[in-house]
């Protein structure tokens, strides 16, 4: 039986307003989810056109989880989103053309061609660039929270992982330390049920990964990761609790990875019925229905949003494609930092 609290589904418009979301916020969530999926769909097309080198990963099915959490973060909070969390970058304000340039290894991508796919982040937007060794980002986020605690700032760090990453020692060390010191950090586990080809029963033996939180001395919550408003509500609670000195929370957002691990993977090992079942709970479609039922989303509004997103993506694609290839002479730039590099708001 579950030790962690199982969160209730999203409520009425009135409830949602009480959590701090006004109508424009609600439309913004919808817009961000559409952009998130759109950027990845465009990326997928570019990949198949041979314009993206290396591999390519998407987070289809995870849009509610990533956008919902990011909407709950404060401006000064920081996060370490991973490769299924495009919605975090979009919500925090990373421009889609730069993401597409990053995909293509161009000079205007956030890493200027030095790293690929979602291995990027804009520190000015409070995001720390992930590494491929995914759970390694958990102690890093905990370290950010430690800095906030030492300086007694009212800021929170948000750490992402998947259910696969939760099997590594980094996850344990990071959560244990965060629990010991009651640091202002919120752990988001995107449990999309498949770590590459490995199913959950070969990754962990507890009922819910969020159950582990109790062992670290903080609260665990299981959330339907396709319900963006439920995700928002739980993330908001946890983030504000951490901000007030209440310590960490582990939120397990349950989703299904709707595509393979990367584009080369057809996910033959995932039962077809599972895909079909979860397709009925597509997070974007689900939220659109909620907006229609609860928030009187009009046809004009919807047309305006979809039109905006389409134009944004088309313009972004063109701008990204115009971005030059990186200059090989920049290869060694920045291997070592200079004292001037520390002249940023973070290092004052």
């Amino acid at each position: 039986m579950s030790i962690a609290r199982v969160a209730e589904p999203s409520g009425s418009l009135q409830e949602v307003k009480e959590w701090g979301l006004d109508r424009e916020d609600l439309l913004q969530i919808y817009r961000n989810m559409l952009i998130t999926r759109g950027v990845e769909e465009r990326g997928h097309i570019l990949y198949r056109q041979g314009k993206i080198p290396g591999s390519f990963y998407t987070g289809r099915g995870n849009e509610a989880s990533s956008v919902g959490v990011a909407m709950a973060m404060g401006t000064d909070d920081v996060g370490t989103p991973l490769h299924r969390d495009m919605g975090v970058h979009i919500t925090r304000g990373v421009e889609p053309w730069r993401i597409l340039a990053q995909y293509m290894g161009r000079a205007d991508g956030p890493t200027h061609g030095k790293d690929g796919n979602v291995h990027m982040a804009d520190m000015n937007l409070g995001l720390v660039a992930m590494v491929s060794h995914l759970p390694a980002m958990l102690p890093v986020a905990v370290g950010c929270a430690l800095a906030f605690r030492i300086r007694e700032e009212r800021r929170v760090a948000v750490a992402w992982s998947g259910e696969g990453a939760m099997a590594r020692g980094d996850a344990h060390e990071g959560m244990n330390f965060a629990g010991v010191r009651q640091l202002p950090v919120v752990f988001i586990c995107d449990n999309n049920q498949w770590a590459y080809s490995t199913p959950t029963h070969l990754e962990y033996a507890v009922e819910h990964l969020a159950d582990r939180a109790a062992a670290y001395g903080f609260e665990g919550v299981v959330v339907d990761g396709t319900d963006v408003l439920a995700v928002y509500r739980e993330a908001k609670r946890a983030i504000e609790k951490a901000r007030e000195g209440g310590g960490p929370t582990l939120i397990e957002n349950q989703t299904l990875r709707m595509e393979g691990h990367a584009v080369h993977d057809d996910a033959f090992y995932v039962p077809k019925e599972l895909f079909e079942r979860w397709a009925e709970r597509d997070p974007i479609e689900r939220y659109r229905t909620w907006l229609l039922d609860n928030a009187d989303l009009t046809d004009e509004e919807e047309d305006e949003i979809t039109g905006y997103v389409k134009k944004l993506l088309n313009d972004s694609l063109q701008r990204a494609d115009e971005s030059p290839q990186p200059d090989p002479s920049t290869l060694l730039d920045g291997v070592y930092a200079t004292p001037e590099d520390l002249d940023t708001p973070h290092h004052k």
Binding site: L138, V142, A145, F148, G174, F177, T344
Partner: peptide, 22 residues
Amino acid sequence: LDMPLSETAIMGGATGAAMMGL
């Protein structure tokens, strides 16, 4: 800070804190 017996948390924590300006 007396840390738990967690070199990963020590090094990862130091990394995060350094990025935040400490």
